[in-house]
């Protein structure tokens, strides 16, 4: 059973961008990898199912691209920037708890071909995201 962490115990990475709806975006070779933050996974508790979009689907910033479900709650997943889905983390189909255990690495969710990479400029830095949570 996962117990909620205090704010100080949560892990937030440098060099990634944070969306106020608790997803993160990381630029890798002009593409953008997306997942949910340590805060989001902690709020959900043990994740039992993750619904991700089909490769090829296109979304705008703020669109819902899927949902994460725990025994306690269901949480919608929101696009930090607009773009086309070019890869999804298929491992999560059988191991959704990877999002709990490794939200920024093994628990990544989608990779997108961004409509406009400059959209990341509108996202939050680590410090601003932490401030948002307080």
């Amino acid at each position: 059973m996962s117990n909620k962490k205090s704010k100080d115990e949560l892990n937030f990475r440098d060099y990634i961008f944070y969306f106020e709806e608790h997803t993160w975006a990381k630029i890798e070779d002009g593409k953008v990898k997306v997942g949910i933050t340590d805060y989001a996974q902690d709020q959900l508790g043990d994740i039992i199912f993750i619904q991700l979009p089909e490769v090829g689907a296109e979304f705008q910033k703020g669109d819902e691209f899927g949902q994460a479900e725990s025994a306690k709650t269901v949480s919608q997943l929101y696009m930090p920037i607009g773009g086309k889905i070019i890869e999804t983390n298929e491992t999560l189909e059988n191991d959704p708890e990877l999002v709990n255990n490794s939200p920024y690495d093994e628990g990544w969710m989608i990779v997108i071909e961004p409509n406009d990479l400059k959209e990341v400029d509108s996202l939050l830095t680590k410090d601003l995201y932490i401030k948002l949570l307080k």
Partner: peptide, 12 residues
């Protein structure tokens, strides 16, 4: 936990 996860996935 894993069994429930599999059950949930199949019967969501």
């Amino acid at each position: 936990k894993d069994d429930f996860q599999a059950f949930y996935k199949a019967n969501r």
